[in-house]
Amino acid sequence: MQASRARLFKEYKEVQREKAADPDIQLVCDDSNIFKWTALIKGPSETPYEGGVFQLAFAVPEQYPLQPPQVRFLTKIFHPNVHFKTGEICLDILKNAWSPAWTLQSVCRAIIALMAHPEPDSPLNCDSGNLLRSGDVRGYQSMARMYTRLAAMPKKRLAARIILITGQSNPV
């Protein structure tokens, strides 16, 4: 408990110091609980997530950093390795390949990398995984892009909903 708190405090200071270094990640610690963090990450360019901003929730266990943080997407995302309902992420470093050499910040970077390079062979969202596995890249991309517009671009949410309902791209 003591050790994890001390480590998280160091990470907190590092995040404050390096704020400008990684403009794609905004990592914020809960005001009252250093074991709860949230992050806003930008969807990587040249992927269907481009232009979207995705929110992640971190729950850090007391055995951190010997045990990995639990991370899930709060923003709905269509991706083979993210559970569509719960936002759970299938990523080896969050399970058995975790080591204390990782940090909350580098976990965010790994998640961005996963967004750009899905692993359809270990799917948590099988609909998404199967589209890719059957070679329907276009199908996967259009679904992923639709959910990015729907859920990860707050300002356009209304417009996107209208497109979804009416099927028309130019709502009045």
Partner: peptide
Amino acid sequence: SAVSIPVSEFDDWAKFAD
């Protein structure tokens, strides 16, 4: 799945696996 949420049987499997 485009509009509705995937079927539950399958969903449960995926959820529990890891």
